[in-house]
Amino acid sequence: MTAATLTRRPGLAKLRAASGRSPLHLACLVVVGLVVLAALVGPWITPHDPNSAELGSALAGPSGEHLLGADVAGRDTLSRLIAGARTSLLGPLGVVVFSTVAGIAVGMVAAWRGGWVDSLLSRSTELVFAFPGVLLAILVIAMYGEGLIAPVAALGVAYVPYVSRLTRSLVLAERARPYVSAYQVQGHSALQICLRHILPNIAPVVLAQSAVNFGYALMDLAGLSFLGLGVPPLTPDWGRMVFDGQTAVQYGYPLSAILPCVLVVLTVVAFNVVGERWADRVARRDK
């Protein structure tokens, strides 16, 4: 008798094992960690005052004094990058927190109530969908003037549909499960069931989507401050730095504009990779 020993589907197993130790994911986690750290303690660890203009070292290249050089006004690029992390992350954080909370509320009410409430909420979020977030932000800034609040609020509203649509479909699926009926029969109120049972079950998926949204919001806000909108002129901010660096690029010193660009791209990619992987893992665990 021939005895066979074999393992089936090694391809998939390998893929799964590799993703567990993925160097890309690890690198992205490190980037996210460093950027968050900079945002938390940035003002205390900058080598120079990010706003002190030393005209003598304007457009200086990398040196012992200025590790990453200085911009047109002679401000230390490294210090501005570190200090800028806070504004650059705070904005998207605001966008994500607002859109997540509002999106979950809208999606949950739409899915739970159904009928005309669902139609009304779904159609109005679709209306927001049709309107580009950046345009909405520019409009709001034009109406309310400069400051971080206006663009964050506008983008926050613009991001609600991404969360609410996902939440709505998740709640619809969850609601069809008999455990929800069981709680209804037990006499629990709709609010209790939604908050205590449905929300924890759908939260991981929604939060993963929000992590991905964070990257996009960061990019949108950087774009707005590049256009000179939103962030007040002197505040260190990556998008603003790219805008300020334009003159330096014309003089042939691109470093002070390129570095914040690179940082924006890196951070966005890192947040997306970490967020998506989290979503994948959550999806797998649910199976």
Binding site: R177, P178, Y179, S181, A182, Y183, V185, Q186, H197, P200, N201
Partner: peptide, 16 residues
Amino acid sequence: VQMVFQDPYLSLDPRT
């Protein structure tokens, strides 16, 4: 009135 559902795999909240 209380009820016991058919599928014990789906009638309990997986987190409780």
